[in-house]
Design a binder for these strands. Sequence first.
DNA 1: AGATAAGGTGACCACCTGGTCACTTCTATC
DNA 2: GATAGAAGTGACCAGGTGGTCACCTTATCT
Lengths: 216, 216
Amino acid sequence: MDLPQKTFENLPDKKRERVLAEATLEFAEHGYHQASVNRIVERLGIAKGSLFKYFGNKQGIFEYIFGHAVNQFKKPLKDIRNTTSGKDFFERIEKSLLAGCTFITAHPHIYRIYLKMLFQEDFPLRNTFLSEVRQASTKFLRPLVDQGIESGQLRNDLDPEMAVFHLDSVMDRFLQSYAVAHLDGGIGLYEADHEVLENKARAVTDFLRHGLGTTS
Amino acid sequence: MDLPQKTFENLPDKKRERVLAEATLEFAEHGYHQASVNRIVERLGIAKGSLFKYFGNKQGIFEYIFGHAVNQFKKPLKDIRNTTSGKDFFERIEKSLLAGCTFITAHPHIYRIYLKMLFQEDFPLRNTFLSEVRQASTKFLRPLVDQGIESGQLRNDLDPEMAVFHLDSVMDRFLQSYAVAHLDGGIGLYEADHEVLENKARAVTDFLRHGLGTTS
DNA sequence: AGATAAGGTGACCACCTGGTCACTTCTATC
DNA sequence: GATAGAAGTGACCAGGTGGTCACCTTATCT
């Protein structure tokens, strides 16, 4: 067969999933360049030639894994927006935070690769992928902010773009703290269980609601 | 000479600085493992053996560069705390943001290495360095928050740890947006000039002051 | 001028990398 | 059971890696 992709698609489901899982893990642990095809095939117990028949080359493996990752990440956002439509703005933010944590728990390796990609310039697909993800994030938040202003829950003198930036900063860091040590500044988010996460998500949204100052 | 460090210290200032500059750039561009000793010596026009005489091994190069980096980063924070003592809380935050930008402009490569280190687990010194930096950051913010509450500028029902987390999130992201594309969510922070930075720093602190909501 | 020691060199090493391809093995169809 | 074609294999390749070390060059001191 000429198309390398086809061979892989024909594989039995179980094997196909095992290959993807092992490859994803390797990229999650080592990033792109430091990831080793030799290690992947060794762990899988298959020959190196097979993997290259499936995906053509190393970049092909990576692109196959990340081809569908963006959509996996976009869908929960859409669900949140639809199911919480009309609800309180800060409640929607809170729900979004918890949805993010759920995604990370379900796809921890994908999230690790994404984080590595953030500051490592030589990842394949980096520009297209990052701009897509960032755009999805702001495209999700912007309508929430606009609706929040309309309904009178947010100050009507807000700069919406600045509000999106602010929300994005805090929410991203919340998720990073859940997934990576060192970043939670001692508030105990790292690998916290569901109950703790709910409390912290509530506390964070309260800060957003009230601000820090007494002069408002 | 037995001590490899000594040889390097004896070098003429100009050469020593050139070696450090070139090595720092290499690590900033490629991270630790992907950085190439061959490329460094090639750019410097010296023999590989020389570099190994100076630093012993690759990790030695990296550790020499980062040995003093922490202090370079801590000093501006101390200066800010001392020179703005007694001033308005949000003004101090604003000044800190701009000081961060100044540091990044002065040491762009160090900051790039730090960002890469955040999510790449196999950096040498990562644990010690990261915990030191994060601790410095919270140790800087905590007294500011405490004093802000005491002086009545911050709500007295604040959870100080949560406040520090919140400030840290927004400030970190502000600096990342200044240094890395993709992250500023369209508010134009990336490589912005001084005037723009001042405006944005003001806007961000205003958000912190007032919060987002109308119910306060 | 000769001696001593430091600095500087680059061919060489073992090891690992992504990638290839002639070959074997399996499996389904007739 | 023969045949066709897909799936699987692993020795092999060129190129890059961090690291070594016997040798050479330069500077300093008596």
